[in-house]
């Protein structure tokens, strides 16, 4: 089978962004394998992020889609003050590169900006950083088996949820 092409990788990342931005969370979750590693490291100092999620703190670390389902449940429950009304977000994804791959796996790097309008406080923020993806071919579809988000502006203005990174 053919390896993943860059345009296929772009389409996958762009679609994921659209699903988050339009709050189609069930479809978004379906893009992940059940054993997804979803990781946004914290910063150890001015220049280095943490690298070992077991010994160092992350901003978010989940092993297993099950945990992301919890996050979605919280977001959509109507029971979280911080999540309702939901902020308006748009992700802009660029610089998509294939960094490794074979017939059944691929690694992709990209950069993102996420613009968030917090309707609750009438304030606009921009979060930016880098993505590293690991993808796996399951039947005919490519699924996300690992997503690492390096958030570069990590002083958090009140809240950053999974929708703004």
């Amino acid at each position: 089978m053919a390896t993943l092409t860059r345009s296929q990788a772009e389409e996958l990342l762009f679609r994921e962004a659209l699903l988050i931005d339009t709050r189609r969370y069930d479809e978004w979750l379906a893009m992940f394998t059940p054993d997804i590693e979803f990781w946004m490291p914290a910063w150890r100092n001015e220049t280095e992020t943490t690298t070992d999620p077991d010994r160092e703190l992350s901003l978010i670390y989940y092993k297993g889609r099950r945990n992301l389902e919890d996050r979605v449940m919280r977001l959509t429950s109507g029971l979280s003050t911080a999540s309702s009304p939901p902020p308006r977000v748009v992700h802009v994804i660029s610089n998509v590169l294939l960094t490794a791959g074979d017939a059944d796996t691929a690694e992709v790097s990209a950069v993102f900006t996420c613009h968030r309008f917090d309707v609750r406080m009438n304030r606009t923020e921009c979060f930016f950083g880098r993505y590293e993806y690991a993808l796996r071919r399951e039947s005919e579809a490519w699924l996300i088996v690992r997503k690492k988000i390096v958030l570069l502006n990590d002083v958090i203005p009140t809240v950053v949820d999974i929708t703004s990174i």
Partner: peptide, 19 residues
């Protein structure tokens, strides 16, 4: 660490509802 991230972080599931 896992319990911390989920509860205490501003990217977690509890602190934002406080702040």
């Amino acid at each position: 660490i896992r319990q911390y991230e989920d509860f205490f972080n501003p990217t977690g599931m509890a602190t934002p509802d406080d702040t």
